[in-house]
Design a binder for these strands. Structure first.
Ligand SMILES: [Zn+2]
Ligand SMILES: [Zn+2]
Ligand SMILES: [Zn+2]
Ligand SMILES: [Zn+2]
Lengths: 166, 166
DNA sequence: GATTGATGTGTTATGTTATTACGTGACAGA
DNA sequence: TCTGTCACGTAATAACATAACACATCAATC
């Protein structure tokens, strides 16, 4: 129940948040995007955990901080973050997670641990992707791809082994 | 707005339904599964369209046919169908579609046309899959994979070209 | 034949996720 | 000043999903 990993590994988590927010600030500057207080706070909230948070979780925390308490407040902030590459929606979970590789345009793949709820974001090589191959042969034009795997992360796998060595 | 395709191609659709139901009947026989009236009807409803239907769409049609009218009726039937490989849930759409390749255990990939709403199911080679590669290198054990691409199908692409030749 | 357990269907009630519709303040440019 | 746009806030509702319980059926057991 302790989701420590980024890509399921230990790391200095305080940097994750600070660095990513700073990076987002810079990116928005350049792109003429407004990283307003709600949006920034929403990003921080997502960054605080390496797991996906539901919109209502985010909403609750925003409300605690004095922002609006109605669903659109969260959904709009999350919409901004996802549209501009600072966060992703995990479709399988109907939940949101901060992007682990912001800045680049990418087709992320997610590994979702059903035991500890950690979610790792992996980069993919779009050109080699399975979906692209299929799309090429069928003449389908992809605008967005969802790649999500559910299963057990290395940490939880190790824990299971320790408890139930068979 | 006319989703004719299976894999986005024209075909004799009446066979889709009849064949698939017959196949499901046989499979259930063998496996000792009960393809009860609600379940069979739910499968037919899904088969009638090559697009994904929401649980409440299915529910409404079941109710028309004299089955229960409350959500669990639909969700339980859909649960049976998905658990036993007769249907899939499209996570991106929170909706369900009949399996195009029932019988085999497989890792399907879906191509979702945002224009005509058609959904095509493609088979994948699990061993070559991107997700599997990632999983191998990180030590993650996959139990289920979600592969969904959103975009424009060949038909709609052609229509767009015809209207707006540029 | 009665009892029991497993399975399936139905209901009500509730929980969770997401959107629509509408109003306000801030601010930039005409 | 007027106007358009953008961001933020609200209330209300839609859409998706599950929990909990009652009842029927049927097969296995007593
Ligand atoms: Zn971290
Ligand atoms: Zn884990
Ligand atoms: Zn068909
Ligand atoms: Zn189409």
């Amino acid at each position: 129940m302790d989701p420590n990993p980024i890509g399921f590994q230990k790391h200095d988590h305080s940097h994750c948040v600070a660095d990513a927010v700073a990076e987002a600030d810079r990116t928005c500057q350049k792109a003429g995007l407004q990283l307003t207080p709600v949006r920034k706070r929403a990003l921080e909230i997502l960054l605080e955990e390496h797991r996906a948070l539901g919109a209502y979780d985010v909403l609750a925390r925003l409300a605690e901080d004095g922002f609006g308490s109605q669903p659109p407040v969260a959904y709009r902030a999350l919409d901004f973050l996802t549209k501009n590459g600072f966060a992703h929606k995990i479709e399988r979970l109907n939940a949101f997670i901060a992007c682990a590789h912001p800045g680049d345009i990418h087709t992320p793949a997610f590994l979702i641990c059903t035991t500890c709820e950690a979610v790792a974001e992996a980069e993919t090589d779009p050109s080699h992707s399975l979906l692209n191959q299929i799309a090429d042969t069928t003449g389908f034009r992809i605008s967005r791809a969802v790649l999500e795997a559910e299963g057990t992360c290395p940490n939880c796998l190790a824990n299971d082994q320790a408890k139930d060595p068979k």
